[in-house]
Design a protein around this nucleic acid. Structure first.
Lengths: 343, 343
DNA sequence: TTGAAAGCGATACCAG
DNA sequence: CTGGTATCGCTTTCAA
């Protein structure tokens, strides 16, 4: 406790302190410590200033600097969920990129629907130079929220008509890849647990599912598709609806809905993969924890975060980066949940 | 794109703008908008200022304010993992409390081992008033990292001798609770998948396991305990070691190690819970996704975050909060992974 | 009840 | 090559 008090009392060295001790003007000290390459300073003076700064453990006050330069070198990232592996990976990627580019990443977690406050707070109070936004809200809501943004932003994992910068994954290709795998195993009655009805990614995955069927010459059967949303309950419920159709395989739009479907299948006594194969999209450690371990298609979620941060920084530097195409999926990892069609 | 440019150019209204338009001095406007209760302002003036501020969409510049007051009303939270449900819940709790107390929460994610930089950056550059620290590093490392902290801090989910403020869960009681449940089902050969050898929580859980055995009059058998760490692989590996001892039940220190153990058991053809019961500590959605769904003891992780933030804010207000005792575990949720002892 | 003015700690322009 | 000095936007005495 005593230590904490001391820490607060011992006011840290300021630029003025450094200048005084080094016997130079503040402006000179500033140039040197900032690494201003335009102006030249005598080497001797330079060294002296640097030495003093170190001795005094000088750390620039970022508030003062930001006030003066109107730049914080901080990116804000707002996410609706933290325990979602997709966002966790995106954060990791964004952070790596931001750090490499000389920026800090400030994560702000908000429940879906409360994005507006966060965006407003972060951007209108000069805390961040730009925003990385992941949202689960629908277009209209998100659009309103973003209207309050006073800084440039990049959307992640979704598009919004009119918003120029966004980075998304190619969910369509991923779904297609999964269907191809199932078809390759001989399946023809392949069901699909779709995401939310209106969602961008859900639509893409459904398209990919249809692409896969079409490529295999399998007709699309509406009765083999059910809306599962993004919860385990949704997955279980949707699976229950589909079981009477006797699919031999099912593609779930997410890991969580796949898990829900699997528990429903277990409960009904269906063996996986002997009676039915199950595949999911996205890869995360949990895929291996399920029983049986889940066949999935890897998605470059970390790369998505990395790229989004990079685009934002470029935008902040005054560039106008061209839109990037959806990031292609990674490999399909065949695990124990998929197998040959039962005969 | 055009819109983003406009946004950056239209410089937001400052306090001076508000004052000018309202025909008063900045200081008066400041008093009113800050809700300074000490000074009295004529109601008419007051209303005018507030109206103007709204019209101009005035938002105080937090950098300027912070520079002047040496207060940011922001708490920094540094966590080593984001996809860990424990930390995700703690963040949620901390955020709720912080918001309720008029503070913002700024999350910074760092890989274990890189905590030092974060702490230093956040606290030495005047971005946060205080820090909430969750760390997986060992005492010596953490202590060094914290030495660089220029602001008060509260530790989460661990203790550190000498650090006055920390909030932890009562892992010992939780482990005890799980053992009691297993004993109640008739088990006597109960194995334990322990956490990291030297960790604080691991030691606590091991103690709780021993407490439970002792209470049931069961002797402690070293051969029934294996170090599983906090990964699925560790859980599987530890389970493999223990299987020759023919336990009828196993208590895993975490959800993840429980999952790893379960996949190992499945692979070996052991039926859960007919041949062996499995229980884990902590509760999270994933517990229900496992097969069979996992019996767990709920832990107040969100409350831990809430409390840590509250203590920190009190500390910042100049109080010296007394240390809080470990937070008692929540209920044991009996799911499908535990059952009567096989006979 | 309101106004004037002095900073907070840095940057950046302009001299010298 | 180095030094003055005017801000950045806000809070906070101190006067009036």
């Amino acid at each position: 406790m005593a230590r904490q008090d001391q820490q607060r009392l011992a006011s840290p060295a300021t630029l003025a302190d450094v200048a005084r001790v080094a016997g130079v003007d503040m402006s000179t000290a500033s140039r040197v410590l900032r690494g201003d390459s335009a102006q030249r300073v005598r080497e001797e003076t330079r060294d002296r200033i640097i030495k003093v700064a170190e001795e005094l453990a000088y750390r620039p006050n970022s508030l003062a600097r930001g006030l003066r330069t109107a730049r914080t070198y901080t990116l804000g990232m707002v996410v609706p969920q933290l325990d979602n592996p997709v966002f966790a990976a995106a954060i990791r990627g964004a952070e790596l990129a931001a750090t490499a580019l000389g920026y800090s990443l400030l994560i702000s977690h908000r429940e879906p629907g409360a994005t507006a406050t966060t965006i407003a707070k972060l951007s209108q109070t000069n805390r961040v130079d730009g925003l990385l936004v992941a949202s689960l809200d629908d277009d209209a809501v998100l659009r309103t929220d973003l209207a309050a943004a006073q800084v440039p932003f990049v959307l992640m994992n979704r598009v919004l008509p009119g918003a120029p910068l966004s980075v998304v994954l190619d969910s369509r290709a991923a779904a297609r890849k999964a269907v191809d795998h199932l078809v390759g195993l001989g399946h023809r009655r392949i069901a699909h647990l779709a995401g939310r009805d209106q969602g961008f990614n859900a639509a893409q995955r459904l398209e990919g599912y249809r692409d896969g069927l079409a490529a295999a010459g399998i007709g699309f059967d509406e009765a083999l598709v059910a809306i599962a949303g993004y919860t385990a309950e949704g997955g279980a419920e949707a699976m229950r609806q589909l079981m009477p159709q006797k699919p031999t395989a099912v593609l779930a739009a997410t890991l969580v809905s796949a898990a829900g479907a699997m528990s429903e299948l277990h409960a009904a006594g269906w063996r996986i993969p002997q009676d039915i194969s199950v595949a999911g999209l996205h890869d995360a450690p949990v895929a291996r924890l399920l029983y049986p371990s889940l066949t999935t298609v890897m998605m470059p979620t970390e790369e998505m975060g990395r790229l989004a941060a990079t685009l934002l920084v470029r935008r902040l530097a005054g560039e106008h980066p061209v839109p990037v195409p959806p990031l292609p999926p990674g490999a399909l990892i065949a695990r124990a949940s998929t197998g040959p069609v039962p005969r």
